[in-house]
């Protein structure tokens, strides 16, 4: 089997799963909707105030929603045995992990990217900020899944996985959070977001290059 076939097979299986089980992409979306709807009740409904916190709330909501799906990366496969199949396959593990993360990014990311601009209108943000937020979330979701894959791979067989995954991933999400939200804030203040945007993209590329390697090493360690 060629390299391409193996990873596309992984990706295709992932998409079939998404089509069959709505909860896979609907749950993170629901979580995101709940977080974003709750905040105005806590801080008040003046549009000036909402505008100031809106970018942050939407961004953090998207990050947490993505974090919620991390256990899905490897846990089920470990339980039904298909993980062993992946590990024993003749393919570079990094490539297979990459295929899976890419599929998951689309599956989870697309609903979030569509929902983010909608919520930015509820937070009285102008249209250009809404677009920038969608772009920022589009970069942040795969970044978070990539760095999260390392933690998820390490904790496949460990106790207390969910909360520990969050502790491990939290420090690694800070750059994408700072630059992603920073770009939207820059647009809100009428300034150029180019620098923030390119730094956020750089962090994504950095994660893209290194984290499949780290995640495959992690998977080998935890399933040893």
């Amino acid at each position: 089997m060629s390299l391409r076939l193996a990873s596309t097979a992984v990706a295709r299986r992932e998409f079939q799963l998404f089509a069959r089980r709505k909860s896979d992409w609907a749950n993170p979306l629901m979580f995101f909707v709940i977080v974003c709807s709750l905040f105005p009740f806590a801080v008040g409904s003046e549009s000036e105030r909402l505008r100031l916190i809106g970018v942050g709330v939407i961004f953090v909501g998207a990050l947490l929603a993505t974090l919620l799906t991390l256990p899905r990366l490897f846990d089920e496969d470990a339980r039904d045995g298909s993980l062993d199949l992946l590990l024993s396959s003749n393919e570079p593990l990094a490539m297979l992990i990459l295929a899976r993360v890419a599929a998951l990014s689309f599956g989870i990311g697309a609903p979030l990217i569509l929902a983010a601009p909608l919520f930015s209108f509820l937070y009285a943000l102008p249209a250009d900020v809404a677009l920038m937020l969608a772009l920022g979330v589009a970069i942040a979701v795969p970044t978070l899944l990539l760095v999260g894959a390392i933690a998820a791979a390490l904790l496949v067989s460990a106790r207390g996985g969910a909360i520990l995954t969050a502790v491990l991933v939290l420090p690694l999400t800070i750059p994408t959070l700072i630059f992603g939200a920073g770009a939207a804030l820059k647009v809100l203040f009428g300034e150029s977001p180019v620098a923030e945007l390119s730094l956020q993209a750089a962090y994504l590329l950095f994660a893209l290059a290194l984290s499949p390697l780290a995640a495959s090493a992690a998977l080998k360690i935890s399933t040893d």
Partner: peptide, 22 residues
């Protein structure tokens, strides 16, 4: 496992420091 996460953290420390500064 913890050694791997220590390394991942060490690679990220300068990036995090830079981001926070920015």
């Amino acid at each position: 496992a913890s050694a791997l996460i220590a390394l991942v953290g060490a690679v990220n420390v300068p990036i995090i420091y830079f981001s926070v500064n920015w």
